[in-house]
């Protein structure tokens, strides 16, 4: 069986003042069904661009992307993206944001309300259905972002440093939450982060990426039992191993 996501030789260039600027250089990725694939890399190494390309929000310069066997050319509901800073619809309530996808597909009001409520409960936002994004905290907004994408039942979830802007405490909490949500309803997730602990806590596989232009340096398989312990010897050993191959100059 071929993977849920298949990216073949993706190249992405942006036009610049001094000729083209290469952001992604020949990347091929494959993710299996219900796998959490973490792209780990420091700073501005084109990870966001890679996710946008996979989501169809940016056109590729060359290469091909297949989601669930179908070629991806335009953004659509089969690929859900959770943004770095939540791009929620500010004029919609939590409920409105979460039920947006099903509504666009023409699902009846009763059905989509139930469904949205299910996911709002799942991310732990019961009681905040009627709040607007500007009334929610950063962590809560990210939860809405996750619920919104989950509720749309995409084949693939793409997460672009979703917890990057949260404080350390909330970040740990959200990592645990994401794991719990994923355990309840498994999905294929591509998760981008620059935090090594986050990567190891969540990943089935970690792809270490190098800086601009982005290429994949090395792949690590993580098969520690879930939920993982940040202080277990295996965890620390893997952490050490990954740190050692990241070029300190890039950090």
């Amino acid at each position: 069986m071929s993977g849920m996501i298949q990216c073949e030789h993706i190249v992405k260039k942006f036009p610049g003042v001094n000729g083209d600027y290469e952001v992604i250089k020949d990347i091929s990725i494959e993710a299996k069904k219900n796998e959490i694939l973490v792209l780990f890399g420091s700073g501005q190494c084109g990870k966001t661009t890679l996710l946008k390309v996979i989501a169809g929000l940016e056109p590729v310069t060359s290469g091909k992307i297949f989601i669930n066997g179908k070629e991806k050319t335009a953004p659509g509901p089969e690929c859900g993206l959770v943004y770095q800073t939540t791009v929620l619809f500010p004029w919609l309530t939590t409920m409105g944001n979460v039920e947006y996808g099903p509504k666009m597909r023409g699902m009846s009001k009763k059905e989509r309300r139930e469904k949205a409520q299910h996911y709002i409960d799942l991310v732990g936002l019961r009681g905040f259905e009627k709040s607007f994004p500007n009334q929610l905290s950063g962590g809560m907004r990210q939860r809405v972002g996750i619920a919104r994408v989950y509720c749309n039942e995409p084949d693939v979830l793409l997460m672009d440093e979703p917890f990057g802007h949260l404080d350390a405490q909330t970040r740990y909490l959200m990592q645990e939450e994401l794991e719990r949500i994923w355990q309840t309803e498994k999905r294929t997730i591509v998760f981008v982060t620059n935090n090594i602990e986050e990567a190891l806590y969540l990943a089935d596989r970690v792809l270490v990426m190098s800086n601009c232009p982005a290429v994949i340096k090395k792949e690590f398989k993580v098969d520690l039992p879930r939920p993982r312990d940040y202080t277990s010897p295996e965890f620390l050993r893997l952490r050490q191993e990954i740190t050692s191959i990241v070029d300190p100059a890039e950090l």
């Binding site: 953004p75 859900g80 791009v87 500010p90 004029w91 947006y100 996808g101 666009m104 597909r105």
Partner: peptide, 29 residues
């Protein structure tokens, strides 16, 4: 109108011809 928000709407399955009523109009209010 924030192009990111338009992207988000497209990503959630909003067809191109409905972007106007579903994103541009409410965010201009």
């Amino acid at each position: 109108v924030d192009p990111e928000v338009i992207g988000a709407a497209r990503m959630l399955g909003c067809p191109k011809h409905r972007i106007f009523t579903s994103v541009v109009l409410p965010s201009s209010i």
